[in-house]
Design a protein around this nucleic acid. Structure first.
Lengths: 177, 177
DNA sequence: GCGAACATGTAATTGGTTACATGATTCA
DNA sequence: TGAATCATGTAACCAATTACATGTTCGC
């Protein structure tokens, strides 16, 4: 059974207390290439976790900034997480709208295909940059050796697929610009 | 807006009539590395598409094998597909339960981490084999140049990440076997 | 006798996604 | 003046997922 929002948030809080906003930052900066979370998932999950006694929250009144709720894991939450982490690993699922559309694009003109691939290259380069630019900060905050593997995995994924797309581009003429 | 089951099935049928079973075969053999479909999605979608007049079905009574329903796209279905294919491309989403668990596995013993990575290597090798062993058949059935890109993308993904995992393994001692 | 390949379907659940709603401060 | 950063939350929706349910033939 795959780890879901519930267990993932619990896992992040197992490492120290955080606000919903900070959890989102971690998700976007470090786990974006293998998990995708949003506020619409984070806050409701945090609320439920609180109701179930797996996390506690402490409200901090701030001046100049909005108030924040700092969430911390409880012993019951720790137990729940330890239990979840030993379940069998689920298969990965990758959904690429880009590849799906490319798969069906045989009737597009060569220049349209060129532009379509070029756009994806730009998106991927931006993602790779976001990930690599985080490395130093992440290392300073404490990056475990296993986390380094997940980082290397992401870099390898972006780099290798970027190369495929760049080579594919050569077969399709650029729009004259 | 991402292409969903509905549009994907429509796209497959745009290339020729198929049964639900055959659609599943295509999904598993050619698109498995960027889409994940199952019978629980295929048959209900086909039913709905039929009700909406986007596909028609013809029942074939077979002896020796179960009866089958062959689905074909209608002009209305073709129009719906053409309309869907020109919408903006959505971001890809990759969910890896393996990377998530690895990310949280700093307290596991070195041999446990070794075994955990080793298992993922085996899963990935099996997937790579499934994909590459299809190439000849796919080419014979008619593989478009754009489809070849999606194939190369899959091979590059599996190959590059497999390499990362194999290198990572060197840091963790094998269980004595 | 058993597993693989062929073949189709339903019902209940659910875990998110999307869209909406608000608002201060800082920096360019 | 407007974008970015910090900050939290709800309500409606829905597209699958999971589990269940059934049955034949062919080859080993």
């Amino acid at each position: 059974m795959a780890l879901k929002g519930r267990e993932i948030i619990l896992g992040i809080l197992a490492d120290g207390p955080h606000t919903g906003y900070e959890i989102n930052e971690i998700l976007q900066n470090q786990l974006a290439h293998f998990f995708d979370g949003s506020y619409g998932m984070i806050y409701p999950t945090l609320k439920k976790l609180s109701q179930d006694g797996l996390v506690t929250s402490q409200q901090i009144t701030q001046t100049g900034k909005p108030n924040k709720n700092i969430f911390a894991i409880t012993p019951a939450g720790q137990t729940a997480f330890q239990k979840a982490i030993v379940t069998p690993t689920d298969d990965e699922t990758f959904k690429s709208d880009f590849l799906m559309r490319l798969y069906f694009s045989q009737y597009l003109s060569a220049t349209d295909i060129h532009d379509f691939i070029q756009e994806e290259i730009q998106r991927k380069e931006a993602k790779l940059t976001r990930l690599t630019s985080q490395l130093t900060l992440w290392e300073e905050q404490g990056m475990t050796p296993v986390q380094k593997i997940t980082y290397d995995y992401g870099v390898a994924y972006y780099t290798s697929t970027l190369k495929v797309l760049q080579e594919a581009l050569l077969a399709y003429p650029a729009t004259t610009d």
